[in-house]
């Protein structure tokens, strides 16, 4: 899976911002904290949910099942706005 190319990110001072081009159908803005931003950035190249969990587990000190739950939640959110190319 991958973030669709119409979805664009930007790092503001403390927030990770995701928006979509005028023709993508999503006119809102997703504001993410550091870890959600980490997940979205990883989706810029072809990956899997499992692989993102592995990468986060290597980076952050948290139980793997907590990380897996977070990753799943973020991906579902992205899916709901049409941002994921399966």
């Amino acid at each position: 899976m991958k973030l669709k190319k119409e979805f664009v990110t930007h790092q503001n001072d403390n927030e990770h911002v995701t928006v979509a081009t005028g023709n993508a159908g999503f006119t809102g803005m997703l504001l993410s904290n550091e870890t959600a931003g980490f997940i979205i950035e990883h989706l810029k190249t072809e990956t899997t949910e499992e692989k993102i969990v592995d990468d986060m587990f290597a980076e952050y000190e948290a139980p793997r099942e907590v990380i897996a739950e977070d990753v799943h939640k973020i991906i579902e959110k992205l899916r709901s706005v049409g941002a994921i190319e399966e």
Partner: peptide
């Protein structure tokens, strides 16, 4: 952002942000 023109090209949208 709501009141900003959103280009249809992703690269130009990134520049806009």
């Amino acid at each position: 952002y709501e009141q900003t023109y959103r280009p249809s090209d992703p690269d130009k949208l990134a520049k806009t942000l």
